[in-house]
Design a protein around this nucleic acid. Structure first.
Lengths: 147, 147
DNA sequence: CTAGGTGCTAGACCAAGGTCTAGGTCAACG
DNA sequence: CGTTGACCTAGACCTTGGTCTAGCACCTAG
């Protein structure tokens, strides 16, 4: 066993995944290299496996589906010759990330506006116009605030 | 019917939600005001409802669960007096958003590094060291690149 | 030897968030 | 009048991504 080798429990602690999830990921083909086993059949993860898993966690955290990670892992497993396809996958995910960033910033704007307005409202002792509670109860009265 | 009123189909087109989802949201209590009905029992959305739904879409896109939106809607429905709780909900979601932003930026770094390395690799006609395909095949050979 | 901790597999279970179907109403168009 | 299109409800169904259980195998320490 090389010095970087870890048991599944250790990998779980290092990656933040549960051992159940680690096994699920393996079954789902997310690992770019076959996980070794010791004589008792227990998984032995290399430092490289762990680095890969950490990247998987980042991909997951940013919405990459298991199937896509699996596809990427497969390409890596297959070795040289498919770099263009890996690049495509990565570029697609990059797109996805920037889209999400935009949405998050958009929602952050909304939330900040609302938070500021509620803070003003509360500081003013309940006076003000935070989030209008009712839909325009008076037809003809336009210009309402929803957020 | 006020001039801003819309049918469910029109709201679906404007919000990007399906009519199924709109009905689901209503059942789940996401709407901050009771949706009116015409004499035939069909939903009539006000402009205010649509604005609210657009905000819901933003919340959903940034990971707010339906139950939380429902809670917020309930507070708004109940009217003044619970502004502090609304503020809490919003602040919590703000936290969530900034956390997600950090994760996205982290993953964006990773992806950018990988993309650049693959581009270099492909430009060099296949030479280089993009994403190491194999886990360290030679024990003792440290310093591998996983991503 | 035996108990505790950790691991194994197979497979059931679960929650969230949609999505779709069946069977029916209504209104407007030609 | 009949048919087309949008709408209604109730409820089944589906996918994703985990999470947990049962029943068993090791291994190490006491």
């Amino acid at each position: 066993m090389a010095d970087g080798d870890l048991s599944i429990g250790q990998v779980a602690r290092r990656t933040g995944l549960s051992v159940h999830t680690l096994r699920l990921y393996e079954r789902a083909g997310l690992l770019a290299s076959e996980v070794r086993r010791d004589r008792a059949g227990r998984r032995v993860y290399s430092a490289w496996d762990v680095e890969w898993l950490v990247n998987c966690v980042k991909f997951r955290a940013t919405g990459m589906p298991l199937t896509t990670i699996s596809r990427l892992a497969q390409l890596v497993r297959e070795g040289s010759g498919n770099e263009a396809e890996r690049l495509t996958l990565l570029r697609e995910h990059r797109q996805h990330i920037t889209g999400q960033l935009a949405q998050l910033r958009d929602c952050l704007d909304l939330v900040d506006t609302k938070v500021a307005s509620y803070e003003r409202h509360l500081a003013a002792g309940g006076t003000g116009d935070p989030w209008q509670q009712e839909p325009p109860p008076v037809p003809g009265a336009h210009r309402h605030q929803v957020g």
